[in-house]
Simulated assay, not measured.
Amino acid sequence: MSSNSTPYYYVPPLSRHPVMAAIGLIAFGFGMVGWVNHTSWGGSMAIAGVLWVLYVLYHWFGDTIAESNAGKNGVNVDVSYRWSMAWFIFSEIMFFAAFFSALFYARNIAMPWMGDVESKLIWPNFSAVWPNDGPAGLVAPFETMGPWPIPTINTLLLLSSGVTITFAHHALVKNHMKQAIIGLAATVALGFVFLCFQAFEYYHAYHELNLKLTSGIYGSTFFMLTGFHGFHVFLGGTMLAIVLRRLIRGDFTAEHHFAFEGAAWYWHFVDVVWLGLYICVYWM
């Protein structure tokens, strides 16, 4: 077990992982370029790049976990991890802020501009009411996604998961490992159910509402915001599942469990983003 009383800052030896991860990311980038340009090799190369990066991350995080369990990470490393996770979450906040800003601009600035008196000369039949299919009539008719029932159910699921992970954290701090495992397992399960409901929601949108990524600015902002949030739920759920496995095998103590805390921070961030989505995308 790691001890926060370790007096030095552990510096790991030279590693192959950064170079290998860079190779995978470059392959993914070239693959995506080929994919969007309809080449025969683009999709395969992009998928291979993703699988390569996942393979590298598996071994990279395995080495990091082994270092922690060997007692090499003291208080200085712990502080570095906390700052790193905080800045990572801040970058994610800026990521979603860009998409929320795009939604705000389209709805509150661009749309009223297209509906003003001067624009009526170009688009006389356009009604500046959100949502719409654009002024040129190029978007196929679609129906919007309301807040009931799936988005509201998913809101309850994520709020409940915030409660269960907080319960698990308090149990871990009090060294009640069984309760911590139950709370964390419930959190992972709630996240999985959330993703299942979102998958059904997308199926419903595409096949029954004709709402697609190509459905104008409404469709693009809807799927970009909810889709990236769903990806973050998947990523956070994966993190929590790994932490759960480590918790079961006894990697954490009441004093030393930053991996749990970091994953919990990320999960709470995912919860807060969803509340913003629920209000701005489904209700407004």
Rank of each mutant, 00 (worst) to 15 (best):
P131Q: 02
P151R: 07
G236A: 13
S161F: 06
Y266G: 11
V56E: 00
M94E: 02
S84W: 03
F95M: 07
N210M: 14
V129T: 13
F99G: 04
W130K: 07
Y81P: 01
I89F: 02
E208T: 15
E143S: 15
A110D: 02
V79T: 07
V53W: 01
V33W: 06
R16F: 00
E261W: 14
W87R: 00
L240A: 10
V129Q: 13
F95I: 03
A199S: 14
L158D: 06
N69T: 03
R16T: 06
A140V: 09
H17P: 05
H268M: 13
S161Y: 10
W274L: 12
L54E: 05
H229Q: 11
I165P: 08
W148Q: 04
T164K: 08
W35A: 08
T226N: 04
A86D: 07
I93T: 14
C196N: 15
L235I: 11
F99S: 07
V281G: 08
H169Q: 11
F126Q: 08
V79G: 00
Y81F: 15
L172V: 05
G227M: 14
F100R: 01
H17T: 04
L14M: 06
P13K: 10
A86I: 07
G43Q: 05
V75H: 11
S161V: 12
F95Q: 05
T238I: 09
E92F: 07
N132V: 02
V33E: 02
G262M: 15
S44R: 03
I47G: 04
P147E: 10
N69D: 06
P18T: 04
V50A: 10
I182N: 10
D271F: 08
I153R: 00
R249W: 08
S127T: 09
L184R: 06
V139C: 00
T187M: 02
F28H: 01
G216F: 05
V281H: 04
W41K: 05
V173E: 12
L51R: 01
G276Q: 12
A186E: 10
H256P: 04
E92S: 01
M94S: 10
V53H: 00
V77A: 07
V77N: 15
F200L: 15
A180R: 07
M284S: 11
N69P: 00
D78R: 15
G24T: 08
F194G: 04
K212Y: 11
D271L: 14
F222A: 08
V270K: 08
M177E: 11
S127K: 12
S215Q: 08
Y203L: 09
T221L: 11
A263Q: 08
L244C: 10
V193M: 13
I65Q: 03
F61L: 08
M145G: 01
I217W: 13
H268W: 11
F200V: 12
H17L: 00
W83P: 06
F222L: 14
V272E: 06
P112M: 06
P18D: 06
L247V: 13
I89E: 02
L158W: 07
I165E: 01
V272Y: 09
W83A: 09
K178V: 12
K174H: 12
I150G: 03
Y203Q: 10
P151D: 05
G276F: 13
N4M: 10
F30Q: 03
H229F: 13
L25T: 03
L103Q: 09
F104I: 14
F126R: 09
P141G: 09
M284G: 15
L235Q: 14
L240S: 01
G115E: 03
M177N: 13
M111G: 03
M114W: 14
K72E: 03
